[in-house]
């Protein structure tokens, strides 16, 4: 995994912005409408999800010593 993804579930409102803008299909909404990681290995840490998350619910950091 190249990146560390932190999700603050209690802030997520399930607007789907992060899921739509993810170029690698890493994220998906779960049955409760909260975002979850389904393919963490594919993440390239581009940060598109964090950039446009209106609820500050997702943070992505590049792993330094991966």
């Amino acid at each position: 995994m190249k990146a560390e993804i932190l999700i603050k579930q209690e802030r997520c409102k399930g607007c789907n912005i992060c899921v739509s803008f993810c170029p690698k299909k890493v994220l998906k909404l779960d049955t409760l409408g909260k975002v979850q990681v389904i393919d963490g290995e594919a993440c390239i840490a581009c940060g598109q999800c964090e950039l446009r998350c209106p609820d500050y619910a997702i943070y992505v950091d590049k792993k330094v010593n991966a």
Binding site: R11, K13, C15, C53, P54, D55
Partner: peptide, 25 residues
């Protein structure tokens, strides 16, 4: 988590805007 977090009143979050609202951005 981020250096700009100190500019938010984090105990007030999540905010009351609708899901998908751009105001948060």
């Amino acid at each position: 988590m981020r250096s700009y977090d100190k500019y938010f009143r984090e105990n007030r979050l999540p905010h009351m805007w609708c899901p998908g609202c751009g105001n948060g951005i």
